[in-house]
């Protein structure tokens, strides 16, 4: 088991955002988390690399307990890629520098080696020609692809995607999803929060439906989309398809 989350709790003030979430991820697996806004999906992702500290519960990455107070969290984070909704590229650095920063400053790689690796990852997301461009010169879709390259360069065991296409114009969503689909096929382990139901249906090995801080249902896409066991899952999917149209 690559990632194991057990009974995770998180509270912001009086509101309990996560009320005991447990699941696991096998190596090479892609799981997609769906559910209404404000149900703790993003909080869950951020608890996994402890950008947000969980209140209770335990998380393991392979045999290392991430939630242990003794763990070197920076070393753990270097092994877990994180792709943000609004990209969060470093605005003062070129695409190339964004991708090689972690290699040089976290992994201590030499400049030459880091540059070669970064260029390789940029090429992988189709942006080899944009290495010298600054984030502000790139479209949203290109920025998100650079941020995926930034995560990939670190050779992560797992990549967390927090609504990676929600900040994008509709015509730019496809290029990002295509990169993610390729990644999933290449055997990368991925945990994706998204409202892109087409992506969930065709790429996910398993879908997790979350509402109000708990997992209501999880299973293969066929089950979730065609014969959901929980009435709330069915209702949510109906609303989503009404909103976005049936082919997504």
């Amino acid at each position: 088991m690559l990632l194991r989350v057990v009974d995770l709790h998180k509270r912001y003030g009086r509101e309990e955002v996560l009320k005991g979430v447990s699941f696991f991820l096998e190596k090479g697996e892609t799981k997609v988390i769906i559910g209404p806004s404000g149900t703790g999906k993003s909080t869950l992702l951020r608890c996994i690399n402890r950008l947000t500290e969980p209140d209770r519960g335990r998380i393991w990455l392979e045999d290392v307990e991430i939630t242990s107070p003794k763990v070197n969290i920076n070393r753990i984070r270097a092994q877990i890629g994180f792709v943000f909704q609004d990209f969060n590229l470093f605005t003062h650095l070129t695409a190339l520098d964004n991708v090689r920063l972690g290699l040089m400053r976290v992994k201590g790689m030499g400049k030459k080696e880091a540059t070669a690796r970064a260029l390789q990852e940029l090429a992988r997301v189709g942006l080899a020609d944009k290495a010298k461009a600054y984030p502000a010169e790139l479209s949203g879709g290109q920025q998100q692809r650079v941020s995926i390259a930034r995560a990939l360069a670190m050779d992560p065991k797992l990549i967390l995607f927090d609504e990676p296409t929600s900040a994008l114009d509709p015509e730019l969503i496809g290029e990002v999803l295509a990169v993610m689909e390729d990644l999933a096929k290449s055997g990368m382990t991925m945990l994706v929060v998204t409202h892109e139901m087409g992506f969930a249906r065709s790429v996910a090995d398993e879908i997790i439906f979350m509402e109000k801080g708990v997992i209501l249902e999880q299973g293969p896409p066929e089950q979730i989309f065609y014969s959901p066991k929980h009435p709330r899952t069915a209702e949510f999917l109906r609303r989503i398809t009404d909103l976005y149209g049936g082919n997504r």
Partner: peptide
């Protein structure tokens, strides 16, 4: 923007490394 710090920490940079780089 706080997202810059989040992204840096998510890469594994320390607090000081984030400030510096």
């Amino acid at each position: 923007p706080s997202g810059q710090t989040l992204a840096a920490r998510a890469l594994g940079l320390s607090r000081l490394g984030t400030i510096r780089h």
